[in-house]
Amino acid sequence: MLDPVVEPGELTELDRFIFESWGYFIIPDVLNQDEIRSVLEASQRLHSGHKGVFQQVGNGFEREPSIERLLDHPAVLPKVRGLYQSDNVIVQAAWCTLQPAHGKTGGWHQDGSSAFDFRQLGYPIPLLQLRVSYLLTDQTRPGMGNLELIPGSHRSRVPLPEHVRTEHAETPISHIVCAPAGSALVFHNAVWHRAYEHNEDYDRYTMHFVYSPPWMRYADRFENTEAFLARTTPVRRGLMGDLSKPDAAYAGGYHTPPYLP
């Protein structure tokens, strides 16, 4: 099986070509064992009391320091900035997802807004939600709650057939991403994807961060709390979309977050 694996850090020309061709790539070994354990334990706290169904919890970075540290992870953030070709991006959402033990395969979908289909904006569907998914449990073989994607589908002029979506059917060109815990999967909002079946006796956890242009509305919160903005770093405040201008936010330009060189 071909795997679009790239090295951590700066976005290279080959990285960009892989992303434009497939719509996603995998960065291995982003988190070490201590980081995996810490973020996994934080995720389990966020989902305490779950009832054995698929669920997601947003805005966990305000409560869990180990999740907050992933906002600007040095192995990943340069890829985000490179793919957008801009420093003016925000974290639109941060979803911690749980697929329960023996969970079934989910439905095919593209990411976007249920309020407005991104497909209406034009072809190709623009990059408005770049998702970075940190694997917190092992997914080295199929049937471990992997993400299944259709390579290159972000460029398709036609949608996935309705019967494939409604019947959760297989396709001959899908790719079940197999990678160990600590890997990061980076993918375009328009790639058709779904959660694959999870046949293990433990719950599967993945920490997703969605990076967007600064004018996108938050998806996992209504606003950032003042307490969090006051205690976090300048870079993370920038990623929250914290603007210093008291007037119209974008009329006179946007204050670029203070990234390190």
Rank of each mutant, 00 (worst) to 15 (best):
residue 80 V to S: 05
residue 129 Q to D: 04
residue 98 L to S: 06
residue 114 S to G: 10
residue 128 L to P: 00
residue 121 L to G: 01
residue 101 A to H: 04
residue 138 D to H: 08
residue 77 L to H: 02
residue 130 L to G: 00
residue 78 P to W: 09
residue 126 P to I: 04
residue 77 L to A: 02
residue 116 F to S: 12
residue 87 D to F: 03
residue 128 L to N: 11
residue 88 N to T: 14
residue 125 I to A: 02
residue 160 L to I: 04
residue 67 I to T: 06
residue 140 T to R: 15
residue 139 Q to N: 09
residue 66 S to G: 07
residue 113 S to A: 13
residue 105 T to M: 13
residue 133 S to D: 04
residue 134 Y to W: 10
residue 117 D to Y: 08
residue 73 H to S: 09
residue 150 I to L: 15
residue 116 F to G: 00
residue 91 V to R: 07
residue 148 E to W: 03
residue 104 K to F: 06
residue 116 F to L: 14
residue 136 L to S: 02
residue 137 T to A: 04
residue 107 G to I: 11
residue 147 L to H: 05
residue 125 I to G: 01
residue 77 L to S: 06
residue 79 K to D: 01
residue 144 M to N: 01
residue 141 R to L: 09
residue 125 I to W: 01
residue 91 V to W: 03
residue 136 L to K: 08
residue 101 A to W: 00
residue 70 L to E: 02
residue 120 Q to T: 15
residue 102 H to D: 10
residue 108 W to Q: 11
residue 121 L to H: 02
residue 143 G to L: 10
residue 145 G to S: 04
residue 90 I to L: 12
residue 114 S to H: 09
residue 113 S to D: 15
residue 85 Q to Y: 03
residue 135 L to C: 04
residue 91 V to L: 15
residue 129 Q to R: 09
residue 75 A to P: 02
residue 115 A to S: 14
residue 141 R to F: 04
residue 68 E to Q: 13
residue 116 F to I: 06
residue 66 S to V: 03
residue 128 L to V: 00
residue 83 L to K: 08
residue 121 L to I: 08
residue 75 A to E: 07
residue 120 Q to K: 13
residue 123 Y to I: 02
residue 143 G to H: 02
residue 143 G to I: 04
residue 118 F to V: 00
residue 135 L to T: 11
residue 114 S to N: 09
residue 134 Y to V: 10
residue 135 L to H: 05
residue 88 N to D: 15
residue 106 G to C: 07
residue 127 L to P: 00
residue 105 T to V: 11
residue 123 Y to W: 15
residue 113 S to G: 00
residue 123 Y to T: 05
residue 118 F to H: 14
residue 78 P to T: 05
residue 122 G to S: 10
residue 81 R to H: 03
residue 153 S to E: 09
residue 68 E to S: 12
residue 147 L to F: 14
residue 159 P to G: 11
residue 87 D to Q: 11
residue 111 D to Y: 04
residue 85 Q to H: 14
residue 120 Q to M: 09
residue 126 P to N: 07
residue 67 I to P: 05
residue 97 T to I: 08
residue 159 P to C: 07
residue 131 R to V: 13
residue 141 R to W: 03
residue 125 I to D: 07
residue 152 G to D: 10
residue 112 G to L: 06
residue 143 G to Y: 07
residue 144 M to P: 00
residue 122 G to M: 10
